[in-house]
Nucleic acid binder design. Structure first.
Lengths: 339, 339
DNA sequence: TTGTATGCGTTATCAT
DNA sequence: ATGATAACGCATACAA
């Protein structure tokens, strides 16, 4: 591999100074038409491409942001990542990804991002830090946009209104006549699970239904699998007639257990999924589900990030709320023996 | 934000020269125990972190590789990406991702990666370039590892033996008594579709069955949706009794059409999916499917890349083959009226 | 309008 | 064994 051509080579070939080359290429300062042409000709002739590393060292900006997430292979996260990457690239930024399965990795990755002089971090921390003084995000000097997480200290963030969404789902099921509704969601250790549980309880209250702990599965650790829990729930003296569940894994496990027991969907069990269409299309009947737009969420993320980087937003942390909607499928019906 | 601490600050605080600081930190050259301690103390006291950009400019290596893929939100690709990211990071490298939906973007991204001085590129090009002289990958000076693609010019690559996999799937169905087997896969414009078609034809030949073009759907453009095609296929005078299909989207669409027509799986239609467990678990009965290990594929990718970067592999391009296996579910049965 | 010179933070090559 | 200094490729303040 021959050594790359630099500004110096271009300057020599064009018979001008390196300063002039730089000025023409960056449209900074004055440059006569003749000089301009000479430089541009030399550039194309030599196939010059500026070295990003050197420019970076000189100007101090990398035009790159980091994306910290617990698990890239999670389909929902991958879709969000995908949209963010596209939007940032359109804005001239590139994306460095880092997966952080543990809180310790959060800190490590943030330091890594800082040392690489990234200009900001979009993050879905795997855990929330109750104490701001030990929270690595608080300590990080970079602009940060949180996705559906709360970290005590106020950060720019894009939040999904899970509370509202679950409320709608529960109300819909109640309208159909359901009184025993199971909820499978993620741990209350992070915002999505916490808000879903809150929305669930609020909606039950509004409907005058009792909250039954036995019907909710919000695993902190996976001591008990969704399969096991679903089995136990179906053996209750008063089993649920409806299920609201997140994601592909939990939902598929729960539904399979139900079907293995001979239950028909929606005749014996109504089901509402939470997630994207794509994955849930596989089920038959198509599952009624709670969805929100990744596109909108990603746009908000990128907007907040760019505003913060450019300094357009210098004030306090901003929150953007994204609203889910209930998309009707064929997985819900009136319970068989409505009370 | 206060200005960062540099080697100079550390040197001053430790009462030594910047050269000594660098030597201690990089374990290069000599350093007495006393000097060593003084430097290390100053480093921790000031919280010094080396600037990656400057180091990069000086040493010429970025310890970063690019990952070029058509679509991050594709679950299979996301899983591969996820594993690659983890393995590379363990080896001290970071990953810059770039999604390229069109061939024009391939070139743009590769140039981008070159200018950013990445040390290599792992790529799943969206299209294959028949003419090596117009292939941007051939022009790219960086080490390249291709994932399940062939680009004429020999590149390091990790390939899946789709031909073998489809062969197994067809043979299994033939053993059950099927004679009309439909195939839904990606376009023959890239390797996966091409190899699948080849494996399909070979297996039919071996079984003494005729190839019927009407039963294969390998869309180049999506002029016709999987739904439409499946509808047409089921209206044939001799409709298929079995279906082999890739991915979540095609498979779910095809299966849904079949079910809407009242067909039962596996009684009226046997189904073999190609992809990962996770997604296909949603179906009931669980779908028999062709799988290969993303972990193994990713490991091979990273190994090839690191060998090429380190210079350990200086010879001709290497190919690593990954073999799929048929995982039994409950979506296949003998055809209703076996000939 | 253009050329020259300095510095970004490191590493590495020289002296000492 | 350690300290001074050049150079990586670029942008820019300043001189011309």
């Amino acid at each position: 591999m021959s050594t790359r051509v630099s500004v110096r080579d271009v300057a020599r070939a064009a018979g001008v100074s390196i300063g002039s080359v730089s000025r023409v290429l960056n449209d900074s300062g004055y440059a006569s038409a003749a000089l301009r042409k000479a430089v541009l000709d030399a550039v194309t002739r030599l196939g010059y491409e500026p070295d990003h590393t050197a420019r970076q060292l000189r100007t101090g900006h990398t035009r790159a942001v980091g994306y910290l997430l617990p698990d890239i292979s999670n389909p929902a996260m991958a879709m969000h990542l995908s949209a963010v990457e596209r939007l940032l690239r359109e804005a001239g930024y590139s994306l460095l990804i880092g997966s952080s399965e543990t809180p310790a990795r959060d800190q490590e990755l943030l330091r890594y991002f800082e040392n690489h002089r990234l200009e900001g971090v979009i993050a879905l921390p795997v855990a929330e830090y109750p104490d701001p003084s030990t929270c690595p995000f608080t300590a990080c000097g970079l602009p940060i946009v949180l996705v559906d997480r709360e970290l005590g200290h106020p950060f720019d963030s894009v939040l999904v209104d899970h509370r509202l969404g679950i409320g709608q789902a529960v109300e819909y099921l109640v309208t159909l006549g359901h009184q025993r509704i199971a909820l499978f969601a993620s741990s209350v250790a992070t915002r999505p699970g916490r808000e879903k549980l809150a929305g669930y309880r609020e909606a039950l209250d509004r409907a005058g239904l009792a909250f039954d702990e036995a019907l909710v599965y919000l695993p902190d650790q996976w001591l008990e699998s969704p399969r096991e829990r679903m089995s136990a729930i179906l053996q209750l003296s008063r089993p649920p007639t409806a299920l609201i569940s997140i994601g592909t894994h939990m939902l598929s496990a729960a539904v399979r257990v139900a079907r293995e027991r001979g239950l028909d969907i929606p005749r014996d069990l109504s089901v509402i999924g939470i997630g994207t269409t794509e994955m849930l299309e596989l089920m038959y009947p198509p599952v009624t589900s709670l969805r929100y737009s990744f596109e909108r969420s990603s746009q908000a993320c990128v907007r907040l990030m760019l505003e913060r980087i450019s300094g357009a937003a210098a004030g306090p942390a901003q929150q953007v709320m994204v609203y889910p909607e209930l998309v009707m499928g064929g997985s819900c019906a009136r319970p068989r023996c409505a009370a």
